[in-house]
Design a protein around this nucleic acid. Structure first.
Length: 480
RNA sequence: GGUCCUGUGGCCGAGCGGCUAGGCAGUGGUCUGCAAAACCAUCUACAGCGGUUCGAAUCCGCUCGGGACCUCCA
């Protein structure tokens, strides 16, 4: 792999050289969350994957406009209706609650906020305009106040299924009987506009009925509004590939005549007990439960940055299974890498290097340029960590220039690209100050070889949940 | 049923035609008042069967597992 970025494009089914439409600039859209319940960890993996991609593009000196929507209307409607009656809440109150919660969780995972985070309800007019356009082109029809996309007609000129690799005949043979199908000409047709039933609270006027936009329309409206008719990257979870993204392609082509996206990226699922995490099946764990340890699935609590690091040790296109054993293994590796990062600050440079530092740092780029291969990047970072430890123990040496290079690139990849944060045991609070005093007293005792006092302090702190570790440089502590 | 993905050492997880992935655990060392930690070194692989090839974990076929989508889902 050369030093240029190659990305696996679902549309092509292969890795290809990435070339933005405009030199040096990238438009990226990612399907965001539906905010009628808490985001679960599976959702988070997708957003963390694309945050990593966003970060690497920024690191590669691209100017990126990153748009990620909030789904607060449309296909959220049905679930909201029931919940609203039950809780006596306004729909937008639910939306607000879970949007805030979503942002909190994203922040804990150290995800950058997107450049624009548009809400579906704020773009009803744009969606109606697209429906009108597709109707004008004759690729949609009105039926009983609703408007449907005519898939079979579209397929005569275009290829419905080009993204997901499906054939319209196969799709037809596999359809099932569902409610409301009688309004459609074909079971494959999907709604662009839905007439609201009496029980629906969220509704907007339109030329066809009081209703709400169809399932897939918001992403088409918001992505093209902020990024143009054709933009560079569209991302989302693998489960959205069909029908959601397939329909976006169809809508885009139907309304503008152009393929809306050059590179389609799909992040794979997070599984729990070998099964996909899913709201509907209840096979989920919430981020908060994971961080607090308050759950029946994991053995202990895990810090958000450790969870993020764990995810970075797998490729974004691979299914990743979540388990306590795997998390704990990652946590230890994380500590090892962070120790090396800290060590790097105090390492001394010399006149020459005993290893190829430039090859090492270039391997970081090679890994990421190969379809954002974070597990390989992490492997190379561990190689770097071993070298740092060898320099420390005198088994290896590094020149001043190479040391600066290594510091610069390691910090860039660990903190900026992977988005990992250091885990400070100290919080800059009263406990911190008190521990300084306790450890100073213990240090005095140890200098007097008063092991009784020294061990008493260590043992009692252990009982209190604070672990003290001695090393040549002094004692450190951490609380569980 | 249709479409597609996948099966790597004790565990997690890269690689996808020839070159040590990496992490955790295990084992052996170093360090240390003790403890813990840390550091260094190191063993165990490519689901099975057949084929292509000078050479296959990597390509092809079959068999047997696992999973996703086809219905809201990241």
């Amino acid at each position: 792999m050369d030093s240029q970025l190659h990305i696996y494009n679902t549309l092509k089914g292969d890795k290809e050289l990435f070339k933005p439409i405009t030199e040096g600039q990238i438009g990226m859209y990612v399907c965001g969350p539906t905010v009628y319940s808490d985001v679960h960890l599976g959702n988070c993996r997708t957003f963390i994957s694309f945050d990593m991609i966003y970060r690497y593009l920024l690191h590669s000196n691209y100017k990126v406009r990153y748009v990620r929507n909030i789904t607060d209307a449309g296909h959220l409607e049905a679930s909201l209706a029931g919940k609203t009656r039950l809780d006596q809440l306004e729909p937008m109150e639910i939306v607000q609650k879970y949007t805030v919660g979503f942002h909190d969780v994203m922040g804990m995972f150290n995800n950058h906020p997107p450049s624009i985070e548009p809400a579906a309800t704020g773009h009803i007019i744009e969606q109606i305009e697209i429906v009108k356009t597709i109707l004008d082109k004759g690729l949609a029809y009105e039926s009983n106040g609703s408007v449907y996309f005519d898939v079979e007609k579209f397929n005569k000129e275009e290829n419905y299924g080009e993204l997901s690799g499906r054939k319209i005949e196969d799709l037809l043979s596999g359809t099932r009987d569902l409610d409301g199908q009688d309004e459609k000409r074909s079971p494959l047709d999907f709604a662009l506009w839905k007439k609201a039933s009496d029980s629906h609270i969220m509704r907007w006027p339109s030329p066809w009925s009081d209703g709400f936009p169809g399932w897939h329309l918001e992403c088409t409206a918001m992505s093209t509004k902020y990024l143009g008719d054709t933009f560079d990257i569209h991302g989302g979870g693998m489960d959205l590939k069909f029908p959601h993204h397939e329909c976006e392609v169809a809508q885009g082509k139907a309304s503008t005549g152009k393929s809306p996206v050059n590179y389609w990226l799909h992040a794979n699922m997070l599984t729990l007990n070998g099964q996909k995490m899913s709201k509907s099946t209840g096979n989920t764990i919430l981020p908060g439960e994971l961080f607090s340890g308050d759950n029946d699935i994991m053995d202990k609590a895990y810090h958000p940055t450790v969870v993020r690091f764990f995810m970075m040790q797998a490729h974004y296109r691979s299914i990743l299974d979540f388990s306590s054993a795997a998390l704990t293994a990652s946590e230890k590796g994380f500590t090892k890498l962070m120790n090396a990062m800290a060590e790097l600050e105090s390492v001394a440079g010399g006149s020459d290097s005993s290893f190829e530092v430039k090859d090492l740092t270039e391997s970081f780029y090679a890994a990421m340029n190969d379809d954002f291969n974070t597990p390989v990047l992490v492997a190379r970072l561990f190689d770097a960590a071993t070298w740092i430890n060898k320099i420390k123990s005198g088994e290896a040496s590094i020149s001043n220039a190479d040391l600066e290079l290594l510091k610069k690139e390691m910090k860039a990849f660990v903190f900026d690209v992977l988005g990992i944060r250091t885990l400070d045991a100290s919080g800059g609070n009263e406990l911190d100050a008190a521990m300084d005093i306790v450890l100073e007293l213990r240090k005095n005792a140890r200098e007097q070889k008063d092991w009784g006092t020294s061990d008493l302090i260590r043992d009692r702190l252990k009982d209190a949940g604070i672990t003290v570790k001695d090393s040549a440089e002094g004692s450190t502590w951490s609380s569980n």
